[in-house]
Write a protein that binds this DNA or RNA. Structure first.
Lengths: 182, 182
DNA sequence: CCGATCATGTAACGGGTTACATGATTTC
DNA sequence: GAAATCATGTAACCCGTTACATGATCGG
């Protein structure tokens, strides 16, 4: 499971509580990185049960209690073993770029769409893509400013490049469709 | 569910049986596009139950029976409604490029890896990526040869461009890591 | 005769999402 | 007084994967 490893990785850096994992640590990469409650809290409880992390309840005068989790040596070891191992590194070979992109799946059948509608759909995709790209650039600026580890920046840069490639492709597609309309 | 719509889209073009959907129609895009049995056959049965497709058992003298499915007007309508609608087109906004790429997830923690090991990992990713790119090019050639609809080719071209962008990024990462080793 | 291919299916599992539930505090 | 934020959690569902099961035919 990737979520568990991500949690261990975060706790490897410093102990913290669930809500913080969710909101603080990743909010600047994307507004919400998106570890959802339904997974986060059960995962924390299970990691504790398995002895990978320990819980300490922090009572606050203001607001609800926090459950502060710390990684154990056992958890740390498991995390490093996962990181060093091959797990999850070659499985993306056959499962593809376009199964993950629902719009692309639809594109397989674009010849059934009336050209005007198709054009509008592509334009909508372009504007979504541009919005996302802007988000990425904002995140990049903010991370640069906060002096985040350079390799985290680098990951974001790949995101930007992939997004740019997709946008360029959409623009090309738009041209083709426009030519068909005329 | 995307698989159901893909099946409807395929049957919209011509009636066929399950095994053919699995092997023929997509084998050239990737060796296996990867609709798996556990999903394909139940989906076909359910689509039939819902009245979107009809089954006709074709008895073969040689080999097992085939279940030949055809799309019904109701199914056709549902397919076109899905295609024309907004469903599945804006959901990729927040769920991200790097949650889908397990290697990138690991990269978040690359500073915990000994540089030599990291270098080997990146090299492995590059060689996997190059292999995949070659597959794509082969598929492209074969599709050109078979005169597949040009927009299907275009989808594959995006795949190639995304793969190239990822490879270029990996190469850049490799350079950074190499510099650190020296 | 062995393994691959054709052809259809079921069962169990795993991982992720949504929605729901609670309750306090802060902000408008 | 309402809405947002902090903080934790559960239950139900959906989608997808793997593994298993069956049995026939064809090529080496």
């Amino acid at each position: 499971m990737s979520v568990k490893h991500m949690i261990l990785g975060i706790l490897q850096e410093a102990p913290t509580h669930g809500y913080n994992i969710k909101k603080r640590l990743y909010r600047n990469i994307l507004q919400d990185f998106g570890i959802n409650d339904g997974q986060l809290y059960p995962a924390l409880n299970q990691l504790e049960k398995e002895g990978f992390i320990t819980k300490e309840v922090v009572i606050q005068e203001k607001g609800p209690n926090r459950h502060r989790y710390s990684i154990t040596p056992k958890g740390s070891q498991a995390f490093l073993l996962w990181l060093e191992g091959d797990e999850d590194e070659n499985e993306s070979v056959r499962y593809d770029f376009f199964r993950k992109d629902r719009f692309l799946l639809k594109c397989n059948f674009m010849h059934y769409l009336e050209p005007g509608l198709l054009e509008r759909k592509i334009l909508a995709q372009i504007s979504l893509g541009e919005k996302k790209l802007k988000d990425f650039h904002n995140a990049h600026a903010s991370m640069t400013h906060r002096q985040v580890k350079p390799h985290r920046l680098q990951i974001l840069e790949l995101g930007i490049q992939l997004q740019e490639a997709r946008l360029k492709w959409l623009q090309g597609l738009l041209e083709v469709v426009k030519r068909e309309i005329k």
